[in-house]
Amino acid sequence: MSKGVIRVVHLYPREMSIYGDLGNTRALAARIRRHGYQAEVVGHDPGDPFPDDPHLLLGGGGQDSGQLRVEEDLDRNADRLRTLAADGVPMLMICGMYQLFGNAFITVEGTRLPGLGILDVTTQGNRTRMIGPVVLDTEFGDVVGYENHSGSTTLGPGQAPFGRVRAGYGNNPDDGTEGARTANVVGSYLHGPILPANPRLADALIGYAAERATGEPFRPEVLDDGLADEARGRQVRRLTGVARNGRREAWSRPWRRGERRAG
């Protein structure tokens, strides 16, 4: 018997789900079902009426052209999204959508494009792309993924990051932070896609959504995450040089602060 229906809204699946970000939606829907709930996935396209009572929102990265096409729709629904965020609705915004959830994006030419301001972050466009595999320390344990962005993001004072970078760039090449978290809204640059290999994060989002959908505490099932744990563990060991027993095998993270790859 279903424990309840969880409504997942994927914002702009056509314009903003490059680099496999649709995998996040797929992973969430599958895990919601495995936990004994029913998943209802709704795609929201620019110009559509905003879905009623969403329990979980997802957004991904896109081409610049895709981003332009969604800005007007975001603007129209800005108040709605801010209210939902303040109300504790879980949201996962990756890359381009993470930037749009911030205060502003400042282009290379210096033009300031305002964002939703749900996350207190500001992104400066620059010509260097930050590309490569990433390992983070987060409240959800080790998180692995792949970043590919040219924007350099700075957290406002008091804004919590999503994680601390152990390998890779993160928000910017300098301060070792990655992403941002406010209430249950998580912004991050991590593709990969992020959720399949990091099921603790997926389940945390599902947990908040389940409470919202049913008015009761999340009642998870015990799932076998053997493949995800092995995939993640291997990336962590490979990229941080930390052996399974915790001993450091080799110190190598050449993609961080050292040589910059052209991109």
């Binding site: 496999g20 649709l22 995998g23 490569g132 595999p133 792949y146 896609p193």
Partner: peptide
Amino acid sequence: NDNDADGRDVSWLYD
């Protein structure tokens, strides 16, 4: 594999 010649990002497998 995810060496340079393969493309280092395997996200595309989800597409």
